[in-house]
Simulated scan of single mutants.
Amino acid sequence: MSANKYLGIIFDLDGVLCSTDEYHYEAWKAIAEEIDINNFTPKDNNRQRGVSRMESLEILLEKSERKFTDKEKLILADKKNQRYKELLNNINSFDLSDEVRVALNTLRKAGIKLAIGSSSKNAGLILERLGLGNFFDVVVDGNSITKSKPNPEVFLKAAQMIGLQPSQCLVVEDAISGIEAGTAGGFDTAGIGGVMSYPKTTYPLRDFSQIMNIVFAN
């Protein structure tokens, strides 16, 4: 039986393995200006982290006095995604830090199951751009779930697909919605960035390499 504390790790993608916040913000800001919202800020953008595209749009539309139909909302969300995908062409393998690359390879060589659990519908594209297209055992993203974080569906599905129980997996997140989802699903969580000090975060991570200290703890 393995001595590792966890047999699987489920990573959020944006803000954990790489940062695409700048691209999300630029794309949403373009949509905001198109519909005469001129006060969309990085703070507003931060509220969109970890949630679905349509939920992100609703956060944006809180700043508009206009009422939009469901059809109009779908058009706006699609426009944002097209702009975002154009910006993703700027991503390449150099956006994967050496720290992250070394840690992922070390975990893989140790036989740890590795999965992606992301609300993004562009997870596959981002992974390809990073040079990680076929690296993970399982990729569960916004295309394969019906409920976004803080619902635990994405993590529960990933755990099931790698054949492990939630108690055997560690969820790595950078957003409160992700920590809430992991906790609701019965997972221990590791929090990077702003969720290091969030009360429900099991392990605060000052840097990505600390994951190995957690997983290989005796």
Rank of each mutant, 00 (worst) to 15 (best):
L164P: 10
G178N: 13
E180I: 11
N92T: 14
K121S: 08
G186D: 08
R101E: 14
V215Y: 00
K200A: 09
N105S: 11
I179Q: 05
Q210L: 12
K85F: 12
D78N: 11
S2W: 07
V195F: 04
K200V: 01
G186C: 10
K80S: 05
N89E: 15
D36V: 10
Q48C: 15
D70V: 07
K113V: 08
A123P: 01
V171W: 05
Y25Q: 12
L7S: 09
E33L: 11
S52T: 02
T20L: 04
L156K: 00
F40K: 01
N122D: 09
I91E: 01
P204S: 10
L132A: 10
D44R: 03
N90C: 05
G124L: 08
V100D: 06
V102D: 12
A158K: 02
I162F: 07
S120F: 07
P152V: 03
L60K: 06
L114C: 02
M161Y: 13
E65Q: 13
I211M: 06
A158L: 08
N4G: 05
G124Y: 08
I211C: 03
K147C: 02
L17E: 00
P150C: 09
F187S: 02
V215Q: 00
Q160W: 11
I91S: 09
P150D: 01
A190T: 10
K67L: 13
A123Y: 09
L170M: 07
G131P: 04
G117H: 12
L76H: 07
E99C: 11
E26L: 15
G15D: 08
I162Y: 06
K79M: 11
F216K: 04
K113R: 14
R206G: 06
E180Q: 14
V16A: 06
I176W: 00
S56P: 06
V195A: 05
L104A: 08
L125S: 01
G186L: 09
P166L: 08
C169K: 02
N90V: 08
E86N: 14
L88R: 04
G142P: 00
A110W: 03
A32E: 00
L125Q: 03
N46V: 08
Q48E: 06
V195Y: 01
L125K: 02
E55Y: 09
I126N: 00
N92R: 07
A110N: 13
K79A: 06
G133P: 01
T183Y: 13
A175G: 15
A190Y: 10
V51E: 00
A27D: 05
E153P: 03
S19Y: 10
N89Y: 12
K73T: 01
L156F: 07
A217Y: 10
K43F: 12
S148A: 15
V102K: 11
Q168F: 10
I37V: 14
S2Y: 13
K63V: 09
E72D: 06
G117E: 05
L164A: 10
F135H: 09
G111R: 03
Y6T: 06
R206C: 07
R47Q: 14
T202M: 07
S144F: 03
D14T: 04
R66Y: 13
L13R: 02
I126M: 02
I35H: 05
E22V: 15
Q210K: 12
G194E: 13
K109W: 03
